[in-house]
Simulated assay, not measured.
Amino acid sequence: MEGMELKPQFDELQKIFDRCIKHACRVLEECIATKTARLDPDQRQEQERLEYNRIADELAELYLHHSVLSDLRFCYSEPAFLWEGGFFEALHADEKKKYLAFSVSSFDYSQYERDNTAYDAELPYFSAVVNIVVRERYAAYLRQREISLSESAPKSAIAVPPIAETENPFDSILTDEQIAYLAAAVNDVKMFNVSLSADELKAIFACKPQAIVRSNNNRLVAFFFSGLSSRGLITPNWQSVIANHKLFLSKDTSRDKYINQSDLSTATNYIRDVGVEGKYATLEKYLMQVKRL
């Protein structure tokens, strides 16, 4: 079985993961909502901050003991993370065979509820995958609750992105041909919420965007720009350029929250310790080729 021949099996396996993940997420979300329902805003924020830290510690522990699952931190929000992410490719050959041979109709959810490791032998890392995705999505939920709380307070209107005072804030040496090639790269991995034309990407490198686009994955953004910087194609200070010129909206924050330098620094720290897999491998192929154009 190769290529698209695998897709039906992955689609059915994804449904199993989704059912287990959805239930666990709902329980956690309802629990924290109940705990904080009668708290004032400051108390609620503190309680949820403690909960977020607890989840972050649990995630760190899970990733520490299951390095094969490191790609999940980048694709946990994908509806088809099993197919789109690099988890399957990171498995050993015999582990892959188990996933491909598993009879989806044999999965007994009641058995899983009694023991969430019941299928780990037949589907390697099954319970760990569920635990990681649940916690990543719950952490994102907690971040969104914090944003919603801050939005309820009076605030001034968001500032208009500043116009670049220089012609080349990124110190870019990219040619029009290279920018067109990179536009295909960012569209291929769906880095932003819309596809970009070569002219639109060129305007972004000039810090004069035609429209502000939203990041689908801040870590992909960091991987892309750090890759250009490491190849000497743009400034090493790309993080501050993006932040100061308010070039992108962040996926994990409110509609009017720009990606800031802290977001980019955190994303860059994440990508330093992970293997180049999935969408990161796709981007890496483009980045390796761009200097040859």
Rank of each mutant, 00 (worst) to 15 (best):
E5L: 08
L6H: 10
P8A: 01
P8W: 02
Q9G: 07
L13C: 03
Q14Y: 04
Q14C: 04
F17R: 04
R19S: 04
C20W: 00
C20A: 09
H23K: 13
A24F: 15
C25Q: 08
I32R: 11
I32N: 10
I32M: 11
A33P: 07
K35C: 09
R38T: 08
L39R: 06
D40I: 10
P41Q: 05
D42N: 12
R44D: 02
Q45V: 12
R49M: 12
N53Q: 14
N53E: 13
L64E: 13
S67W: 15
F74E: 03
C75S: 09
E84R: 15
G86H: 03
D94P: 03
K96W: 04
K96E: 07
K98E: 01
Y109F: 13
Y112I: 04
R114W: 09
T117I: 06
D120K: 01
E122H: 07
Y125N: 08
N131I: 04
E136K: 05
R137F: 15
L142N: 04
R143H: 15
R145K: 14
L149M: 09
E151L: 12
P154A: 03
K155L: 12
K155W: 12
I158V: 15
I158R: 14
V160S: 12
E165Q: 08
E167Q: 10
N168T: 00
S172E: 05
E177K: 08
L182N: 04
V186N: 00
V189G: 03
V194C: 10
L196S: 03
S197I: 06
K202C: 02
I204Y: 08
A206R: 08
I212C: 05
R219M: 10
F224Y: 03
F224L: 00
S229W: 06
S230Y: 12
G232K: 01
I234H: 02
P236N: 07
W238K: 00
A243E: 05
L249T: 07
K251W: 15
T253V: 15
S254P: 15
Q261G: 10
D263Q: 05
D263Y: 08
Y270C: 14
I271M: 11
E277Y: 15
L283A: 06
L283M: 09
E284W: 04
M288V: 09
V290F: 02
K291H: 11
K291N: 13
